[in-house]
């Protein structure tokens, strides 16, 4: 028996090369996310980046109110919950005490671009040496699909039944464009997780944003266009198409800011 198995193992040893496994930084807790939601992908990308940079033991995550409020359960590093919109302030407090730890916030669009606009703008303006992952799915997911600051004109939500009428509800907030104007922000990029290629690009941007923090260059933010099939009333695959057809034209992808220093150090 024993010999036999060894033979099998030796014959099949090429199969033992691990090409895909759960990142160490990702916990085994089952997430509460809806089917087709891409928060899970973004969590995984962060965990992979943290593993690759070998920083799990120095990382402290801040998870404010929103769909990712339980984020602290899904990772294997220290974490704090934060009040709605206040994650950049909480992260500032942590980072000022531990300038050498890796501190990041994980914020949705309602959190970051509505109730927490002040905190994010000023964290960026101060050049707070933290990383922000900004998940933009153009809707309030946790409360059941109301208009978010990033909801597109014409987009139907449970609080814009006829579609967002800009005459009544105003215009979407363009976070990456806005924050790129702040001198304290050194790296700002918008990515999407609607295709394998874009997922890879998103991971690259997230990695850069963490490296920026490692190199103590200043404030870095990666906006990720993310799917909310349940909130949008679409099937998961349709939701990914909706990102391509509707979100990306309004929220163009790319790096909005990478200072020369950033380019020199993280490419």
């Amino acid at each position: 028996m024993k010999v036999e198995r060894t033979e099998i193992e030796s014959r099949q040893s090429w199969r033992e090369e691990i090409v895909y496994q759960r990142p160490k930084a990702l916990s085994t807790t089952r997430t509460h996310y809806c089917p087709g939601c891409t928060h899970g992908i973004i969590h995984r990308l962060i965990a992979e980046v943290i593993d690759e940079l070998g920083i799990m033991e120095q990382t402290i995550g801040v998870f404010p109110v929103g769909c990712a409020v339980f984020g602290y359960d899904y990772f294997n590093f220290d974490a704090s919950e934060a009040a709605h919109g206040r994650a950049p302030a909480v992260a500032t407090g942590i980072k000022r005490i531990y300038p050498d730890k890796m501190v990041f916030t994980y914020q949705g669009d309602g959190d970051l671009a509505a109730i927490g606009t002040t905190e994010i703008v000023h964290a960026a303006a101060r050049g707070e040496n933290i990383t922000t992952i900004f998940v933009n799915n153009a809707i309030y997911g946790m409360t059941g699909g109301q208009m978010a600051p990033t909801t597109l004109p014409g987009q139907r939500t449970t609080s814009t039944w006829q579609g967002r009428d800009v005459a009544i509800a105003g215009h979407p907030v363009k976070v990456s464009e806005m924050l790129a104007t702040q001198d304290g922000a050194v790296y700002i990029a918008r990515t999407a997780v609607n295709s394998p290629a874009n997922v890879n690009r998103a991971k690259g941007a997230i990695k850069k944003a963490f490296k920026v923090q490692q190199a103590k260059l200043g404030f870095a933010l990666v906006e990720v266009l993310s799917a909310c099939p349940v909130g949008w009333g679409l099937a998961p695959k349709e939701a990914l198409v909706w990102i391509t057809e509707h979100m990306i034209p309004s929220y163009p992808l790319g790096e909005f800011k990478a200072t020369d220093e950033v380019k020199a150090i993280v490419g």
């Binding site: 801040v62 009040a83 407090g93």
Partner: peptide, 13 residues
């Protein structure tokens, strides 16, 4: 609001 939340972060640390 930001000040008290910075306290929250620093106290958490």
């Amino acid at each position: 609001i930001a000040a008290i939340n910075m306290c929250y972060g620093a106290a958490a640390a």
